[in-house]
């Protein structure tokens, strides 16, 4: 039973990364109809940024946690203005290809400067121990990650459902033409929302730096799973992406814990779930099926 609780808790921590990344993707897709393939590369930049801040500027993890998401959000806004906006009116495939290309450029730029080997990065001293959670003890840093992720998800939910800005964003997401017709300046919010989504990926990257291998390709594999999570949760559904992120993290942890015989299943699990969900509810678990155009 204690084992089960441990694996459950651990699954939630793994899910926290998926949820943060999926949330950013969902927000961006909802507002801009852009499938941002560069999300994985931004996650990598977040982690690398933390490393560079520490080794070349001397700023600690806590500063990185503050600085990197903001810096990357600004970078995202510039990206949206300079590149993404130009392709916005064309078929979504163009922006998908653009962000795919950006991924390759960003990865290779980091590679050429820092090489492919992983860079060392440690958790802050205060979080490097373990916490007693009653039934078991758990690395303090992982508990912190989970708390941060939940706080951010709740914060975003509050922003969207309880503020005027959120109302505008939701309206623009669901019925862009109608919102414009009602006199809401949708265009004004496109750039900040894109930047916000990018900032979330950067935050996930900084959080990952102390416990995962920091190297130029760290986001390349992860992004595939995040796409699957977003599809499972339902397109553009903020709640769906977060819920699916945590759920996939949980289920993966459980199946991995079953042992060697289940190894194959744990590798394909997320895609099996995705296929199953698509067959059962093509719009995803929390997506809204729309009337055919």
């Amino acid at each position: 039973m204690v084992n089960f609780l441990q694996h459950t808790f651990n699954g939630l921590v793994g899910g926290a990364f998926l949820a943060l990344l999926a949330l950013g993707l969902a927000v961006i897709f909802g507002m801009l109809r852009v499938v941002n393939f560069a999300h994985g590369a931004i996650y990598m930049l977040g982690a690398f940024g933390a490393y560079v801040l520490l080794t070349e500027v001397g700023l600690s993890f806590w500063w990185a946690l503050l600085v990197m998401p903001i810096a990357l959000a600004l970078f995202g806004m510039a990206l949206e203005r300079l590149l993404v906006a130009r392709l916005a009116r064309l078929d979504p495939l163009y922006n998908f290809l653009l962000t795919f290309g950006l991924t390759l450029i960003l990865q290779d730029a980091v590679k050429s400067r820092y090489g492919v080997q992983s860079s060392p990065y440690d958790a802050p001293a205060i979080l490097s121990g373990t916490l007693d959670l009653g039934a078991f003890d758990f690395p303090a840093y992982r508990v912190f990650v989970l708390v941060m992720a939940v706080a951010v998800c709740v914060g975003v939910w509050w922003l969207l459902s309880r503020t005027r800005v959120g109302m505008v964003v939701r309206a623009a997401t669901e019925r862009p033409e109608l919102s414009t017709a009602l006199g809401i300046d949708v265009g004004r919010w496109v750039t900040p929302v894109f930047g916000f989504g990018i900032g979330l990926a950067g935050l996930a990257g900084v959080l990952a730096a102390p416990i995962r291998a920091v190297n130029p390709l760290m986001g390349a594999d992860l992004i595939i799973v995040v796409f699957a999570v977003v599809v499972i949760g339902g397109l553009g559904s903020i709640f769906g992406s977060v819920a699916a992120g945590f759920a996939i993290g949980l289920v993966q942890a459980w199946v991995q814990a079953l042992g060697e015989d289940w190894a194959l299943l744990s590798q394909v699990l997320v895609f099996l779930v995705m296929a199953g969900v698509l067959l059962w509810r093509p719009a995803g678990l929390f997506g809204r099926e729309e009337a055919p155009a």
Binding site: N10, G14, L18, I224, A253, Q256, A263, S266
Partner: peptide, 24 residues
């Protein structure tokens, strides 16, 4: 006393399940 096949490539970069399991 135990063996586990971790996914390859390990997309999440996470091995915590096995590390939790080891002492148990």
């Amino acid at each position: 006393v135990g063996r586990d096949a971790a996914p390859f490539p390990n997309t999440s970069g996470d091995f915590s399940t096995y590390l939790l399991k080891a002492p148990t």
